[in-house]
Amino acid sequence: MVLIYVLGAASVLVPAVLVPVVATRWVPVARESRAADRLRVAVAGLTEALGRVGAALVVLLAGSAAVVTICWPLGEALSRLEPSVDHPVFDYVHARRVEGWADVNSFVTAIGDRYPLKWVTVVAAVGFVIVWRRRRWWIPLLALPLQFVVEQYTQQVLALTVNRGHPPTDLGTYPSGGCARVLLTFGTIAVLAGLTWNVPRRGRIAIATALAVLVSVEGYTRIYAEKHWLTDVVGGWIFGTLLLGVMVLAVLVADGRVRPPSRSADAAPVEVTTSA
Results as ranks from 00 to 15, higher is better:
Asp232Tyr: 00
Thr188Trp: 02
Val149Phe: 11
Val89Asn: 06
Tyr92Pro: 00
Asp266His: 14
Arg34Tyr: 14
Leu60Gln: 10
Leu46Asp: 03
Val98Asn: 05
Pro83Trp: 02
Val123Ser: 14
Pro260Asn: 07
Val150Ala: 06
Ala56Asn: 01
Leu18Tyr: 13
Val89Phe: 14
Ala268Arg: 12
Pro116Gln: 05
Gly240Pro: 03
Thr196Gly: 06
Val150Lys: 01
Gly165Ser: 04
Thr221Asn: 04
Ser79Phe: 15
Val93Asn: 02
Gly245Arg: 15
Ser84Leu: 13
Leu117Arg: 00
Val19Asp: 08
Ala62Leu: 11
Val22Thr: 02
Arg201Tyr: 12
Arg25Cys: 13
Arg52Thr: 01
Arg259Thr: 09
Val258Glu: 00
Ala77Tyr: 13
Ile223Arg: 05
Ala206Phe: 05
Val98His: 07
Asp266Thr: 13
Pro20Lys: 03
Arg134Val: 01
Val104Trp: 11
Asp266Lys: 10
Glu48Trp: 14
Pro269Phe: 13
Val12Tyr: 10
Val68Trp: 15
Leu160Asp: 14
Val150Gly: 03
Pro175Cys: 04
Leu243Trp: 09
Glu32Gly: 10
Gly203Phe: 04
Val157Ser: 00
Leu243Lys: 00
Thr273Phe: 07
Val19Gln: 08
Leu81Glu: 03
Ala110Asn: 05
Thr161Trp: 15
Ile130Glu: 08
Trp229Glu: 00
Val149Ile: 06
Cys179Trp: 14
Glu32Tyr: 14
Lys118Asn: 15
Arg38Ala: 09
Val43Met: 07
Glu226Met: 10
Val246Cys: 07
Ser33Thr: 03
